[in-house]
Design a binder for these strands. Structure first.
Lengths: 337, 337
DNA sequence: AATTAGCACTGAGGACCACGGAGTGCCAGG
DNA sequence: CCTGGCACTCCGTGGTCCTCAGTGCTAATT
């Protein structure tokens, strides 16, 4: 039903449309691609492709434009991920090399990805839920407050102030800290609740309120609140594109972090590139955009996602190459931290 | 030269233009404002205002539009900051109330301000340079690395990993931590370098490399690197406006954090509202925007700035009111932390 | 049976033009 | 000093025409 040549025509349509942003007609296609047949033949193929829903006409007597379904086929079967040039790879290395802490790694990564793809880049902070506790620190602040700092093995730091305890003896804080670390350091975050369950029973009754307060804040900050943090860059690149939806809708969607997190999260196949095209994105404002995302992590443990948002009419092979390459490098950098 | 009525006309022109986004003519002005004179008289006044450069005509036989100079006069002499409504104030309180840590306070503040003003909001993290050290924590990570966490009195937390030290004894880390805290906790950040100057001399010679490494990272993270962090929200609100400069230029300028930091920093009068109009902003891409900014802080000590970026054609009284109110509330919240 | 050349048809978009309307500047009279 | 009146200017709108890229169809060719 779709023979080789029809697929070649579809590929050519996608490539030309991505380049020119104008509906592509049979004549110009025959000119620019070595298909070896005449425009008339191409027209016949186009009719078939249109009947199957891979391309569409904005109006009669205009060229053809790929549909979401057409892009889908293109991505799945007609293109391959384009590896980065040596220069680009060197740029990544030097760009990410100088980062000193997690915040900076993330900040640089997102800018880098936006620059490489000339689109909007998204980087999610390494997930809390899949990492383990490296260390818990309790710091008595002046007065009646304690600051709790939790450090995970992915370099992420969570801090929280615990208040309203009355005066707390420094010795008590010391004991509590030691006990806590003995109980949970090295533990997977998911196991923390169980691990601390019987701790209050082990402290002297008069110190129990403090212990309970600390534990409840700990649990809240680690387990209950697994809102993930994300960072954006390159929104300026959107201005160059003209969307079916208004630019405003797209920008609004991008500011809704929860939406983005969900979208990134819906990858089919972990540790692989995922491409969601147009209406495949459930969010209204992103109907005319595509999202290319990938997992990154240390070893083969996935920690979080990075991704790129652009018009459906984007350079898929190039974008996919950039996303994949950056994801790998970030993983390496994190492993070295 | 500029009598009362001419000023009233200018005020009316600004207000109408802000509302309608269309050049305002003498007739509609006479209709909508109780100036008590005829359109012809208003025309004469307009000629005078135009000669002085406060308003301009996009083309002959069109209405008048305020110039940057006109807005300047309006802001300085013809308008007053508009206090928020009770409902708005309640919204601020409930919105900022639930924040648990500094990151969240900042994140909520910026979203709030963007929503109140329907423009782009900027919030700068509390400055490191003006705060003091609350506590320094050294945490031996597994192996040969140490994590350093510095907590300031403004709730800000800086963390850094120190690597490549060889195996470090836990006892040494303990001593170092105590010594460090004795030396610098409570100290103003600017005084930290002096305060730690002679610390290496106090440790045993064999531990000196560790101490030196820790100190150099400390100094680097606190003093040398006083890049300030900022956060944006509400960029989607820009899409509704049509700028003289392209939207892309504005978005690009907004992504250059260093530019924004400089712009915010150039407030005339600390602890007061600052308004920079159009070409008063040195940055190319922001020539057709205005920036309203204010300091916030605890007590009368200014810690950082917040601000709003919008078209020169903005509702100055309302925006100024929102910025001022939010700045105050954030100060209160920080003080209570 | 598949491909191609030829041809009539279609619709978008640009150039051109006429016109209505909002606004101005100026002048003469209150 | 203010105001009504008036001639003038220019923008924006809507209509018409024309071009042009591209299509679908049919008949001829391989």
């Amino acid at each position: 039903m779709l023979d080789e040549r029809k697929l070649a025509v579809l590929r050519a349509v996608v490539e030309d449309f991505v380049n020119t942003n104008e509906p592509v007609g049979s004549r110009s296609l025959a000119d620019r691609h070595p298909l070896g047949v005449s425009p008339a033949t191409i027209r016949n193929d186009m009719v078939a492709l249109e009947e199957d829903g891979y391309i569409a006409q904005p109006h009669t007597s205009a060229g053809r434009v790929p549909t979401d379904k057409g892009y889908r086929l293109f991505v799945d079967r007609l293109s391959s991920v384009k590896p980065l040039s040596a220069a680009e790879r060197r740029a990544i290395e030097s760009f990410l090399g100088g980062a000193v802490d997690l915040d900076e790694i993330v900040a640089r990564t997102v800018r880098l990805l936006a620059q490489l793809t000339r689109q909007v880049a998204i980087v999610q902070y390494p997930s809390l839920t899949r990492s383990s506790v490296q260390h818990v620190e309790l710091v008595p602040l002046g007065g009646q407050r304690i600051m709790m700092v939790v450090i995970t093995n992915t370099g992420r730091v969570e801090q929280r102030v615990i208040d309203g305890l009355g005066v707390v003896d420094e010795k008590v804080v010391d004991d509590l800290r030691n006990m806590l670390n003995r109980a949970i350091s090295g533990k997977h975050l998911g196991d923390v609740p169980d691990a601390v369950d019987d701790l209050p029973a082990q402290v002297a009754p008069e110190d129990r309120p403090v212990a309970v307060a600390v534990l409840s804040v700990l649990l809240e900050s680690l387990v209950e609140r697994h809102e993930e943090k994300i960072v954006l860059a390159g929104t300026a690149n959107l201005a160059a594109v003209d969307f079916a939806a208004s630019l405003r809708d797209v920008l609004e969607a991008l500011e809704e972090n929860m939406v983005l997190i969900r979208l990134l999260g819906e990858a089919k196949d972990p540790s692989m590139l995922t491409v969601r095209i147009g209406a495949e994105n459930f969010h209204e404002g992103l109907r005319s955009t595509s999202i290319v995302s990938a997992d990154y992590g240390v070893g083969n443990q996935s920690l979080a996602k990075i991704g790129v948002v652009g018009p459906t009419r984007m350079d898929y092979p190039g974008t996919m190459g950039a996303v994949r390459a950056v994801a790998r490098y970030v993983g390496q950098i994190l492993a070295g931290q």
